[in-house]
């Protein structure tokens, strides 16, 4: 069984090695799977389960708790419009309505060409630039309907690749090394885990 490709497998092993308990790598591994495929496929959940020592059902049960982890396919660009309080005060409901019209889909749906998924977001912590819009979790600061339309056109034409990687790629900076604390300490941690587990 090999779900992750060669590069991803090496990164997956590194992720597991960073934690005293392998299960801590579960969410980071889900992000990694989404980087490979854009969403969390059943095959991905099976391999993640094996990597961290739980059942595939536990991976699914955990993943479905989190908004960013998708167990169904999503578009190349996940567009999130915040409508929480600060954005609400600045026309967020109207911008979200416009986004639905422009993309021709309701909240939660994906355009037939597989390019865009639209989400209504909770506060994204950029409240001095309302209404807040993210594409693939990058702040785009398009606060008007016109700016939104322009962004959609540019994305559809393949623009913004530098700043907005396709959905699933969250962190492009690789951790450059492993852990450097002496291995004895790690052994003590694992022993303490077993002692209290």
């Amino acid at each position: 069984m090999s779900y992750f490709n060669a590069t991803m497998t090496a990164r997956a092993r590194q992720l597991v090695s960073l934690y005293p308990e392998p299960r801590s790598a579960l969410v980071p591994l889900c992000h990694l799977a989404q980087e490979q495929d854009g969403w969390l496929t059943p095959e991905a959940m099976e391999e993640i389960a094996e990597l961290v020592g739980v059942t595939p059902a536990e991976v699914r049960g955990t993943a479905t708790f989190y908004d960013m982890l998708h167990t169904e396919p999503v578009g190349r660009y996940v567009v999130a419009v915040c409508t929480n309080i600060a954005c609400l005060l600045d026309g967020a409901i109207e911008l979200l309505a416009h986004a639905q019209e422009r993309l021709g889909i309701p909240v939660g749906a994906t355009t037939p060409d597989g390019l865009f998924t639209l989400e209504e977001a909770e506060c994204l912590a950029d409240c001095d630039h309302p209404p807040c819009v993210q594409v693939n979790h990058r702040f785009v600061r398009t606060t008007t309907a016109e700016a939104f339309d322009r962004l959609v056109e540019e994305l559809a034409a393949g623009g913004h690749a530098e700043n907005i990687p396709t959905h699933g790629t969250l962190v492009r900076v690789r951790r450059s090394g492993g852990l450097r604390v002496d291995p004895g300490q790690i052994a003590r941690e694992r022993a303490a885990q077993e002692g209290s587990g």
Binding site: D67, M68, R175
Partner: peptide, 8 residues
């Protein structure tokens, strides 16, 4: 270790 959340 920098650990990413996933939306919650």
């Amino acid at each position: 270790v920098v650990h990413p959340g996933a939306g919650a």
